[in-house]
C-alpha cells in the first residue's frame, strides 16, 4: 500500500512548526540551533515527498544540497557557540544582551 503524499506533507509541516516554535520559545542556544536543523529537515522531507509526486529528480538533488549546507552551518554555528561559552560560560540567549537599543 502506498502512503499518500499528503501524509508526508503533514509530518513535514508539523516538524517545521515544532522547529519554528522551538526557535521562538526556547532560550538555550543549542536547543535553538537544533530547532533550526529541524526546520531544514522538515523541508528535506517535504522535498523528497514532492519529488516522488512529480516524478522529478530536482527535489532529491536539492536535499543533498541542503544536507551539505546544514553540515557547513553546524560547523560554523558550533564554533560560534563554543567561543561564546569560552567567554561567558553560559548558553542562555537572555544573557547575551550587551547589544541593544
Amino acid at each position: 500500500m502506498e502512503i499518500p503524499v499528503g501524509h508526508y506533507q503533514f509530518v513535514a509541516a508539523a516538524l517545521f512548526m515544532i522547529g519554528v516554535v522551538g526557535m521562538l520559545v526556547r532560550r538555550n542556544v543549542i536547543v535553538m540551533f537544533m530547532s533550526i536543523e529541524l526546520m531544514l529537515n522538515a523541508a528535506n522531507l517535504s522535498f523528497v515527498a514532492w519529488s516522488r509526486l512529480w516524478d522529478s529528480i530536482d527535489g532529491q538533488i536539492f536535499v543533498f544540497m541542503v544536507m551539505v549546507v546544514a553540515a557547513a552551518e553546524v560547523a560554523v554555528g558550533l564554533a560560534i557557540i563554543i567561543s561564546l561559552i569560552r567567554n561567558r560560560d553560559s548558553v542562555n540567549i537572555e544573557e547575551a544582551s550587551l547589544l541593544k537599543w
Binding site: 526557535m23 533550526i36 561564546l84 567567554n87 547575551a96 544582551s97
Partner: peptide, 9 residues
Amino acid sequence: NESALKYFL
C-alpha cells in the same frame, strides 16, 4: 561573539 551568535541564529 554576541553579534555572530545573533546573526547566525
